[in-house]
Structure formats: C-alpha cells, structure tokens
Write a protein that binds this DNA or RNA. Structure first.
Ligand SMILES: [Mn+2]
Ligand SMILES: [Mn+2]
Ligand SMILES: [Zn+2]
Ligand SMILES: [Zn+2]
Lengths: 144, 144
DNA sequence: AAGAAATTGAAAATCAATATCAATTAGGAA
DNA sequence: TTCCTAATTGATATTGATTTTCAATTTCTT
C-alpha cells in the first residue's frame, strides 16, 4: 500500500496535481484491501470517516487511479467496480445470487484466445471473460 | 425467418399479446440478416419504411424478442446490441477501431471454463468472453 | 359493431456517469 | 509567512441509454 501511494504521489507531482485531504482519504480506504468496489460502496466507507466527502470526488479519484494504472475498472453489469491493479492479468467468476467474485488465472485459456485472434487475423489488445453462476453456498441454498 | 416469426406469433398468442403493424415491421427488419444491431440502427432501418415508428416501440420489441428467446442482447460497451439467437453458443472478436464483430466458437476454451468453475465449486450458468483488438484492415491502417 | 385489453408515440422519469461552476484549498514563489 | 494562481471540491445540472407513464389508438374476440 505504501508503494502504491508513493507511486500515486509521483504521478500527482508530475502532472501538477495536488494532494488533498479528500483524495488521500479515498485513496487510503481504497487500498485497504483487495476488493471489487462500486463508487457507492467506497463513498459509504469514506463517509464513515469524513461525512462531507462528495460523490463526484470519489468518481474523480477512481478515474485518477485508473488513469495512472493503480486501479482497474470492471464492468460486470450494473455500476462499474474498481479493484487494485495487479501484476498478472486475471479474470472473474461471479455469483449470480450473492455477488461473490472469485479471481482466476488460466494460461491455457489465454493461449487459446490468442490462437482465435491469430486465426481471425486480429491483433489482440485486451479481453473480457466473466463466468457467471452460483457459488457453492448459493447453489446449496437453491436445493433447500 | 418464417419459422422465427411463427414462433413469435405462437408466443404472442400464448401471452395474449397482439400483432401490430409496427411490431411486425420491426421484427421482419430485425430478422432480415444476422447482425449485431443497436436499437438506434434498427430504428433507422424501420423508419425508412415507416416514418412514424417510435423508438420506445423498438426497445419494447427487442425486449420481447429477447424474452421469448429469439434474440440475444449483447453488451459490448456503449449501447446494447441485439442479434438473432443461435443454436450454438458463440463468443465475439471486436475491432476497437471500426467496430467489426466476428463470431467464433471454441470448444476447448469452453471446456477449460467449465474446469475453472468446477475447481472453484461454482455452478456455471453462462459466460461472457469478448476479445478486443484490431481487425486486419484496421491494424494495417495503423502501420500506414 | 362493441368493448376490453394491448399497443403506440411523445414526453417524462430513471440510472450511472460526467460536466459545470462558484467557493475553497494547496503549495510554489516572493 | 504571506500571496497568488491553479487545482480541487461539493452541489447541482447535464448527458446518454433505457424504461416508464399516459392519453389516444388499435387489435381481436364476441
Ligand atoms: Mn479482480
Ligand atoms: Mn453474435
Ligand atoms: Zn453466491
Ligand atoms: Zn477494424
């Protein structure tokens, strides 16, 4: 977390941007743990500490983090979610019932995706793979 | 196309829904060829034939087709796109420059996805896989 | 032909996200 | 420190896509 914040500060300096009480709070809450948060959820958390944080400021801060490569924006449907950026690419399993998100990496799939692109003469830039289903707990529920 | 329309009529009867001039036109334009159309694009086409079609009616008709399994809704970013439903599941390659959409099926990837779900004890319901990049033509352009 | 229920188009409402703007704040220069 | 300017903030308005509302019209069954 410290290195992430110093990377951000470096970015701010370079771009002539400023460090503010609100920005610092939002960033430090965001980096507390690796999760996939909506703007709304992060806003809720920072407001527990500073009542007056504006809605737009959270949007702006997450955009800033995304732009400087410290956060990834995910569009799973509904509101966008943001997570800490990671060294390795990963994809997601999403529970249709409770919303649980599980991350996975699968090199074999990635290789096959590259093959598909080659076959179709596409230069692959990025991809989105989301597996939707029911997590163990929720699947159990459905069978009473 | 005929069978699709008779399937739709069957669905309408069952649900006590009606066949209208507008609905029929929108449906027949939609089924003319297999494409991935936005509401806007389909509206444009039907308005060449009937000026007065309202855009809410196109939304409503595409929702109807989706609900009765005759259309798939795709969310590639920006406005939603709709395509004819197909027997076999397929995924998409999307050109970031010209928007070209190429369909593909890859059983090996599907198998691996199922494996990932098993490993994580998820019951897989559906998935989304979109490969974004540059088609041959557009990749060429970028290297002048 | 009559009547009930569905449908239509226009306009308003919704939802997530972005832009606007006056007031405030940060941080480098003096 | 104090000044100054540019960046930032929060509230609010706006946007873009989609859905809803509603009065007028149409369909379809009797
Ligand atoms: Mn993740
Ligand atoms: Mn398709
Ligand atoms: Zn679950
Ligand atoms: Zn292209």
């Amino acid at each position: 977390m410290e290195d992430k914040i110093s990377l951000l500060n470096k970015h701010l300096k370079e771009k002539g941007l400023k460090s503010t009480r609100q920005r610092d709070l939002i960033v430090s809450e965001f980096f507390k743990r690796h999760q996939h948060l909506t703007v709304e959820e992060l806003l809720e958390r920072v407001r527990k500490i500073d009542q007056g944080i504006g809605y737009a400021t959270v949007y702006r801060t997450l955009r800033l983090l995304t732009e400087c490569g410290l956060a990834f924006k995910r569009e799973f449907g509904g509101s966008a979610r943001f997570e800490h950026s990671t060294d390795h690419h990963h994809d997601h399993l999403i529970c249709l019932d409770c919303g649980k998100i599980v991350e996975f990496e699968n090199d074999r799939i990635e290789k096959l995706q590259a093959e598909v692109c080659q076959k179709n003469r596409f230069k692959l830039i990025n991809h989105k793979m989301e597996l939707y289903g029911y997590c163990e707990k929720c699947h159990g529920k459905h069978h009473e």
